[in-house]
Computed example of a mutant assay.
Amino acid sequence: MTYEQLLREAIHHGIDIYEKPMTPTVKGFYSDEVIWINKNIPTNVEKACILAEELGHFHTTIGNILDQTKIENRKQEKRARTWAYEKLVPLSKIVQAHKNGIRNRYELAEYLEVTEEFLDSAIKRYKEKYGFCTTIDNFTICFEPLGVLEMFDY
């Protein structure tokens, strides 16, 4: 899903989006149906990853969770990131990439229009959630090493 598509989705939900210059350590921020994206982020692919996470906060978090020393705030942060991973790196798209001949992480990140860092974090989260593999229809997705296996019908 592209940055432009995510922007349209945010607007559909009544969220205002602003791109503002921020310090390099801050990439995005969500509060009260407003999302700020760091204007200094160089690519729309990276901006899409940040926007997806901030949309995840809109959909999954409540209140101020800036203090990450609190367990509940860390849980909410994880829920928002998981929402973003499932939005931009759905398991069905990993299977589709396999069907289209994608054979490595670089190609997969490019196919999904996400950064390699975002893809790696998504795969790590899926491994936490499902273990080393999970099955979708007739396909088994292995997370370590990353690959897709197709099962045959008899």
Results as ranks from 00 to 15, higher is better:
90 P>T: 03
65 I>V: 13
35 I>M: 07
30 Y>A: 02
109 A>Y: 04
149 L>I: 13
103 R>Q: 13
92 S>W: 06
141 I>L: 04
117 E>W: 01
52 A>Y: 04
78 K>T: 08
11 I>W: 14
107 E>Y: 09
90 P>M: 08
83 W>L: 01
67 D>A: 04
45 V>H: 04
60 T>M: 12
57 H>S: 03
16 D>V: 09
66 L>I: 08
34 V>S: 11
46 E>K: 11
114 V>T: 08
22 M>A: 02
40 N>G: 12
42 P>N: 11
83 W>T: 01
102 I>T: 11
71 I>G: 00
41 I>W: 02
92 S>N: 13
12 H>N: 14
59 H>L: 01
1 M>E: 10
87 K>W: 01
27 K>C: 08
85 Y>S: 02
125 R>T: 12
1 M>I: 05
108 L>A: 02
20 K>I: 15
133 C>Q: 12
1 M>N: 09
97 A>L: 05
100 N>S: 09
145 P>W: 07
105 R>N: 10
77 E>V: 02
55 L>R: 08
9 E>Q: 15
74 R>D: 01
38 N>Q: 06
24 P>Y: 10
91 L>N: 07
93 K>M: 14
115 T>D: 04
28 G>W: 07
117 E>Q: 10
34 V>G: 00
22 M>D: 01
129 K>F: 01
32 D>L: 08
58 F>I: 00
79 R>G: 00
6 L>H: 09
152 F>W: 08
107 E>H: 11
125 R>K: 13
129 K>W: 00
133 C>S: 15
2 T>K: 14
146 L>E: 01
107 E>S: 12
62 I>H: 12
7 L>A: 05
113 E>N: 15
